[in-house]
């Protein structure tokens, strides 16, 4: 005789079996190669910047949840991604106390005030970085040469600057390829760029490894490939047209693709699902918008790099794109025969 109490669940009773926390974890795995390369090229300093950033994001998320009497949401891994991304976009000698502040801001201002994961308009890591850029314009544009002899034995003095003290920088010699181009018109060697043998933010330098991480996510169907394709494609085409027009004034499209934070931004930040449109056509528009903006800011703007602002503007535009681009609902056209 069957006497068991049965569970009641609503249909569908099967699920595809991919889960949000697993997607988030995989994004973290995909960032591991770029992170390891950062540790290798900038040494202990980079490890410290990235670790502090991650820890700060996770702690902030945990305590904000606790204070607002909600269950902690750190197990969804999204705070780890924010921390990693923020750390990777900062200069490797960025003072640690500033990094910590950046993490707090990213989570609190970039995510929590909107209502947490899924409700944020902007990519939290970029919000953190944008605020840091406004607050510490000198520190965030002071670069540091990669592959220093002593990178595994000592850390840059600016790193350990005490809070609210003006840090002293000892790394002014590490101009990035983009600023070198912008201000001195020197173009870096393409293969050096792709392989990350140049100066730059902690984790943005090795375009090849970032690309590989992105490919992994695309292969696992955890990232919308249309976004990086649209961004990189439009950057390539737009800057290519300019280059053909006058190769003396404008940088080559290959240089544009591999320099600065474009690869990391296109692969890992613009693809943040929360901040991008939801339809396939929508993300293409979004990607092209970002790509064009990157070129415009880099070439005609006052800053050497524009990826961050371009993506933030793209995020701001996303809800509008979603309102405008709606797939045609089944059975709503004049269709018969």
């Amino acid at each position: 005789m069957l006497t068991r109490t049965l569970n009641i669940s609503t249909s569908p009773h099967i699920a595809k079996g991919i889960s949000t926390d697993v997607i988030m974890q995989n994004v973290v795995w995909a960032l591991v190669p770029a992170t390891l390369f950062a540790a290798y090229s900038f040494g202990i300093s980079a490890v410290l910047v990235i670790s502090v950033s991650v820890i700060s994001c996770v702690l902030t998320e945990h305590f904000l949840c606790k204070f607002s009497k909600k269950g902690s949401t750190i197990s969804d891994w999204s705070a780890v991604i924010t921390g990693l991304l923020l750390g990777l976009t900062l200069p490797p000698i960025f003072p640690l106390w500033m990094t910590f502040c950046g993490g707090v801001i990213a989570i609190a201002l970039g995510k929590f005030v909107f209502g947490g994961l899924g409700y944020n308009v902007f990519n939290p890591a970029l919000v953190g970085r944008a605020v840091l850029q406004a607050a510490f314009p000198v520190a965030i544009t002071t670069w540091y040469p990669a592959f220093l002899e002593n990178r595994f034995t000592s850390v840059a003095t600016s790193l350990t600057a005490l809070p609210f003290m003006q840090p002293t920088f000892d790394g002014t010699s590490g101009a990035t390829p983009l600023s070198a181009f912008k201000f001195d018109h020197i173009t870096a060697n393409t293969s050096d760029l792709a392989l990350g043998l140049v100066s730059g933010s902690t984790g943005e330098t090795c375009a090849a490894l970032i690309f590989l991480g992105g490919l992994y996510l695309i292969a696992r169907n955890m990232m919308n490939w249309r976004i990086p394709v649209a961004i990189l494609g439009s950057v390539f085409v737009f800057s290519g047209v300019l280059y053909l027009f006058d190769s003396q004034v404008y940088p080559s499209p290959v240089f544009m693709i591999f320099s600065g934070g474009l690869m990391l931004g296109a692969m890992f930040m613009a693809t943040d699902m929360v901040g991008s449109p939801i339809t396939s056509l929508g993300v293409v528009i979004y990607g092209v918008f970002i790509g064009v903006l990157v070129v415009v800011i880099r070439i005609w703007g006052g800053l050497p790099e524009g990826v961050m602002y371009a993506i933030l503007l793209g995020n701001a535009l996303s809800p509008q794109i979603d309102k405008m681009i709606k797939p045609r609902v089944y059975g709503t056209a004049n269709h018969k025969k």
Binding site: N7, S19, L117, M273, V329
Partner: peptide, 25 residues
């Protein structure tokens, strides 16, 4: 039965949009 799969907030991944045969959101 995979019991009590944890519900997360919508991350706007768009999977549902690409699945709906009626093309709803």
């Amino acid at each position: 039965v995979k019991k009590t799969s944890k519900v997360y907030p919508c991350i706007k991944c768009g999977a549902c949009v690409d699945a709906c045969p009626i093309s709803l959101n």
